[in-house]
């Protein structure tokens, strides 16, 4: 039995934080299900975006942090543009992903790769100022152990000159590094 007052009370701060980060107000949601209905990936989710909104309304937002759905969401924004209550649904999903990372939630194995990719990506940008695609793909293979995945695609791409073998490094790398550090300071150095 869920004590709604307790959950709403305890979860209010979290819900407010998500609202703030997504620049929206999930209390406006009237649970019509347009978001889940139009979501191209709802079929693969454990709980749909409508239910995520409901969890937040009832102060159970932290449960949403454990949902696979937030990692399956492709941020295609179909939900957001269709929402009759003008809720930034995709933005809420994104805010939840950020929170899940910040709070060190265990990310479901099947989608742990997203985190690895994000880390690799941001690391690459931090070091070079731009993305080194081949490095990213290689890093992904190393970290996930899927050494042979998509090899069939990589080789022709290399041959067609689509993947450069060396990262391009911009001159303003120090500036980029400073941006990363300042952001870290401002966001509380949690990463």
């Amino acid at each position: 039995m869920l004590n709604l007052q307790a959950t709403i009370g305890a979860g209010r701060e979290f819900t407010d934080e998500i609202n703030h980060e997504a620049g929206t107000d999930i209390n406006r949601c009237y649970q019509c299900g347009t978001c889940s209905g139009g979501c191209p990936l709802f079929y693969a989710m454990d709980i749909g975006p409508r239910q995520v909104m409901r969890l937040l309304q009832t102060g159970l937002g932290e449960e949403a942090l454990r949902a696979r759905s937030i990692w399956i969401c492709a941020t295609c924004d179909t939900c957001t543009v269709r929402c009759p209550r003008e809720i930034n649904v995709a933005g809420v999903m994104e805010a939840l992903r950020i929170q899940a990372r910040r709070r060190g939630y265990r990310i479901p194995a099947a989608v742990r790769k997203v985190r690895i990719l994000t880390d690799l990506f941001l690391g690459s940008v931090r070091r070079s100022g731009r993305i080194f695609e081949l490095g990213l793909v290689q890093g992904m293979k190393m970290r996930t152990g899927e050494l042979l995945k998509d090899v069939g695609m990589g080789i022709p791409m290399l041959l067609k000159g689509k993947l450069s073998l060396r990262p391009h490094r911009i001159r303003g790398r120090a500036e980029i590094e400073r941006i990363y550090r300042k952001v870290q300071e401002m966001e509380g150095g949690s990463r």
Partner: peptide
Amino acid sequence: SCCGATSAHTSSP
């Protein structure tokens, strides 16, 4: 420099 793609805004606003 890189715009950050999806990775930047999904991990840090």
